[in-house]
Simulated scan of single mutants.
Amino acid sequence: MLFHMIAGGPQPVAPFSHAVETDGFVFVTGQMPDTPDAPGVLPEGIAAQTRNVMANLATVLGGLGLGLEHVVMARVYITRFKEDYAEMNAVYRSFFAEGRLPARTCVGVTGLAYDALIEIDLIARRP
């Protein structure tokens, strides 16, 4: 197993690796909607927070020589499910090629670190 911390990646909010790799699979820790330059500072609204989360996930994958096209599974956690689900989906979908959406689970939760509206984790597979 390989435990990865990506230089210039998002600042961890807890004790974890950015990703763990085993047998060609890469498990990417759930990312928050802050940026590496401003840890803990969140933009307003689900659209902006979803974009930041996806950018952080892409940064971690990029640090491993992978991209969003290598994602096989995503888990999305949102705190305002009914209010934000449709808008989050529109932003999320824009990060993937048409017809190439990973498998996904999306759940409503009661709270996330930094009082974020969204967190997403991924499983990717090396080609």
Rank of each mutant, 00 (worst) to 15 (best):
R100N: 14
R126Y: 09
A19T: 04
A90P: 08
P36E: 06
Y77Q: 06
G99C: 12
F27L: 12
P39H: 09
V72Q: 14
V13M: 10
A58V: 10
H70P: 11
A19R: 01
V13Y: 01
F95D: 05
G108Y: 09
P12D: 08
V13W: 13
E87Q: 14
K82N: 15
V28P: 00
I120G: 00
L117H: 00
R100Y: 15
T79K: 11
F81C: 07
F16W: 10
A116P: 01
A90K: 14
I6Q: 02
G108D: 10
T35M: 08
T22A: 02
V26T: 04
A86V: 15
P39E: 13
R125F: 10
P12M: 10
C106N: 13
F16C: 06
Y85P: 13
A103W: 03
P33V: 03
D23F: 00
G40N: 01
M73F: 15
R104D: 09
D23C: 09
F25Q: 13
V91Y: 01
M54N: 06
V76M: 15
V26I: 13
N89M: 14
V71G: 01
I78K: 02
D23R: 12
A97I: 03
V13S: 06
T50K: 02
G111Q: 04
A47F: 09
I123M: 11
N89I: 15
F81Q: 13
V53F: 04
F96Q: 06
V71F: 07
A47K: 07
P36V: 13
D84I: 14
T22I: 08
I6D: 07
L66F: 14
L57W: 06
P10T: 02
F16Y: 15
G99W: 11
E44A: 07
K82H: 04
V13Q: 03
D121W: 08
M5W: 10
F16G: 07
T22D: 15
A47E: 02
I6K: 00
A55E: 13
P15S: 03
M32I: 11
L66I: 15
L101M: 12
V109K: 03
T59S: 05
V91A: 07
Y77M: 06
G108V: 12
D84Q: 09
N89H: 09
E44H: 03
P102Y: 04
V20L: 05
V41G: 08
L122V: 03
E83W: 08
P15C: 11
G8E: 03
I118C: 00
M73A: 10
P10F: 03
A97S: 15
Y114Q: 08
A19M: 08
F25A: 14
R80Y: 11
L112M: 13
E119P: 00
L57R: 00
V20C: 06
V71R: 00
M73S: 11
E44S: 09
R93D: 05
Y77V: 09
G65V: 12
M88E: 11
A97C: 14
D34C: 07
Y114S: 02
H4C: 05
V72L: 08
R125S: 13
R125W: 08
H18Y: 10
A113K: 01
L42R: 06
V91P: 02
G63K: 13
H4M: 03
L57S: 00
F81R: 03
H70G: 02
T50M: 02
G62V: 09
T22P: 04
A97G: 15
F81Y: 12
A74S: 12
P33Y: 01
L68F: 15
L2S: 05
H70A: 14
E87S: 13
L117S: 03
V41H: 07
R100D: 14
A47C: 11
